[in-house]
Amino acid sequence: MDLILPTYIAYLIISILLTVWVARTLHRNGRVFLVDVFRREDLADSVNHLLVVGFYLVNLGYVTLALKLGGEILSSRGAVEALSGKVGGVLLVLGFMHFFNLFVFSRMRKRARLRHEPPPVEPDSHLAPAH
């Protein structure tokens, strides 16, 4: 009996659950970074939401693209091995996207801080106060 359909279904369920879990983690914890960068909560929430949408698009896109399996699945062992291969790929892509997001947050935060840095040197003198 070809177990391909149960394997596909298991793959989709596992992959989608993992994607949702990582996305929610990013959404919840990334908010703090964004509030720090944008100083406004409504703007931070807006950007956060937009980033999460992008995250879902890329990751669910990969999950669906990577679904197709070459041969038949004729045993449970075959099913587990096929599943582990596919889910492994999904986890790696999720991991990459996760770190990429952190990198983007960190860069945004660094650039925002730069804007508020005072001059690194003291002046040599001052103008007399205006008359």
Binding site: E117, P119, P120, V121, E122, P123, D124, S125, H126, L127
Partner: peptide
């Protein structure tokens, strides 16, 4: 009202630029 001369003036110019502010801050 601050007045900067010579090397300090240059550092302040770099500090004012978007791309080079981090270089200026390295002068700390």
């Amino acid at each position: 009202g601050e007045i900067y001369r010579g090397p300090k003036a240059w550092i302040i110019c770099l500090w004012a630029l978007r791309r080079h502010r981090s270089t200026a801050l390295a002068m700390r």
